[in-house]
């Protein structure tokens, strides 16, 4: 763990604030007209999704934490926790579902993910920016509906509901932007 001036903090770094590890999600400089410079940070506790806003003087020393990215296999979930295995050490560990509100829709059993770890703590699971997922529930397009751009909702294997063009059928694979959770294209597998 090293120290960093608050003014040098960047979005995406992990810092220790009130003894809690946080991901920096936003950083904005504030210079009061007649004062010295400050930074406003928006932080997220990746373990439970809780967010925190803090203000620091640019000269304040902040603890930056050295996180490690490990390649891990996602094994299964019991609803409350998601269980992963480190591909190198075969160590198994649980990640509470609370911290995976967005990521959980893209976790497929048996697939490998980059997992951000700090000692025993898991500070995030990285999902690829785009993922191809199987449509598991889809109603047929309404007959005679040929309007271009017509859309409907389908469910993919993880339970995520996605808005797709009307021609998408159950059993097909679609590419999803994991950041926006939006449909991108149909994939021929």
């Amino acid at each position: 763990m090293g120290q960093i001036k608050a003014g040098a903090i960047e979005k995406g770094m992990f810092i220790l604030e009130k003894e809690t590890p946080y991901l920096v999600t936003e950083r904005e400089f504030v210079n009061p007209g007649k004062g010295s410079s400050f930074v406003r940070l928006k932080l997220k506790d990746q373990r439970n999704g809780a967010s925190l806003k803090v203000t620091h003087k640019s000269q304040d020393n902040i603890d930056e934490i050295d996180v490690e990215e490990q390649s891990c296999q996602y094994l299964y979930t019991d609803g409350e926790n998601f269980v992963f295995m480190n591909n190198e050490t075969y160590e198994q560990f649980e990640v509470p579902a609370d911290g995976l509100e967005d990521e959980k829709w893209f976790l497929i059993e048996g697939d490998a993910y980059r997992v951000v770890r700090w000692g025993e703590e898991t500070l995030g699971v990285k999902v690829p920016p785009k993922m191809d997922m199987e449509v598991t529930e889809a109603e047929d397009g309404v007959k005679g509906d040929t309007v271009q751009g017509a859309s409907k909702y389908v469910k993919v294997a993880t339970g995520l509901t996605v808005k797709v063009p009307i021609f998408i059928k159950q059993g097909e694979f679609i590419r999803i932007n994991t950041d926006t959770k939006e449909y991108q294209e149909r994939i021929n597998k």
Binding site: G35, S36, F38, D60
Partner: peptide, 20 residues
């Protein structure tokens, strides 16, 4: 719950609360 340092002068202490 605002982090503040013993070395802070009046203006810094004020700004920490004002800006936060």
């Amino acid at each position: 719950g605002i982090s503040i340092s013993d070395d802070d002068d009046w203006e810094t202490a004020f700004n920490r609360i004002f800006l936060d």
